[in-house]
Design a protein around this nucleic acid. Structure first.
Ligand SMILES: [Mn+2]
Ligand SMILES: [Mn+2]
Ligand SMILES: [Zn+2]
Ligand SMILES: [Zn+2]
Lengths: 143, 143
DNA sequence: CGTAATATTGCAACATTATTGCAATAACAC
DNA sequence: GTGTTATTGCAATAATGTTGCAATATTACG
């Protein structure tokens, strides 16, 4: 069966198949993200990859996954980016995840939490995204 | 009149006065933050300072202002830190600002918005802070 | 299948933001 | 004024992410 960039179940093929190529590096990143419930930084992904992949490639893959709606990005309190696979049906360019995230102040681990986020109204400006980051001590660190 | 670290009106003097010293650099940073309604990054503060101050010093001053409850820090989507004076009565180590922030996707300008943020409950972990970052295009950039 | 087109990768260099160590300076208590 | 030491400035370093470009590997197509 011919596959067009099918990394995840229920994933639509892009209009022009040749625009995207299925590589073992991308698949590796997908696998790592799938295996971990926490959101991961580029370095964390790199560490957990079986395959030897260049640092820059991981950055580029994660960036593209975000654009394509395969993963979403969360900025931690230290300014680092963390990525997690999108659970909802996110489109290329439009994320529909509307959940909050939690980051541990101590170990910096960051994860999606099951708390829906509502989009407030603001005068004069149109709000395109809302990010909610909760912080505190995680289970391990508070024990 | 003798002043003990009195940069802002209604500011309590610390227990031991010698722990804190009133310098023209700190006063300069305070003045810059007071003059601008937007939250400012370290570099922006540096630019707007009349006084010539070292870059590292600005970082250190802003960091301490946050610890002392003089200013609060917001992390933008690019991972940079922005600072704004605390309006509420924030204590050393405890911020009581409970408002959201808005950042323009285009010009990256970031500002406090008058939308109160409630603290959600989470199982297993105690939430210590909540940050809400709204993004979109600011008035200037959408025109 | 074999070939051509080109998306993707790897490497090295660079950019940006922030931190650290340490000696020089300056604010404050007395 | 003098001494103590918090604060500053400077240079070096760290951490995260980006860019240019040549080499490579994936896909389309005959
Ligand atoms: Mn998430
Ligand atoms: Mn604010
Ligand atoms: Zn933790
Ligand atoms: Zn703008």
């Amino acid at each position: 069966m011919l596959q067009y960039y099918v990394f995840l179940p229920n994933r639509k093929a892009p209009k022009v198949a040749t625009e995207r190529r299925n590589t073992k590096q991308k698949q590796g990143v997908i696998d790592v993200l799938k295996e971990h419930k926490e959101a991961l930084s580029a370095d964390e992904v790199l560490d957990k990859l079986d395959l030897k992949v260049n640092r820059v490639t991981v950055y580029r893959i994660l960036e593209r996954f975000e654009q394509e709606g395969i993963a979403h990005r969360v900025v931690g309190l230290e300014g680092k980016s963390y990525y997690a696979l999108c659970s909802d049906a996110c489109d290329s360019g439009h994320h529909h995840d509307r959940h909050a995230h939690f980051q541990c102040k101590s170990c910096k681990s960051l994860r999606c939490v099951d708390a829906e986020v509502i989009r407030p109204k603001l005068d004069n400006v149109k709000i395109e995204s809302v990010s909610v980051l909760l912080t505190g001590l995680c289970e391990s660190c508070s024990a």
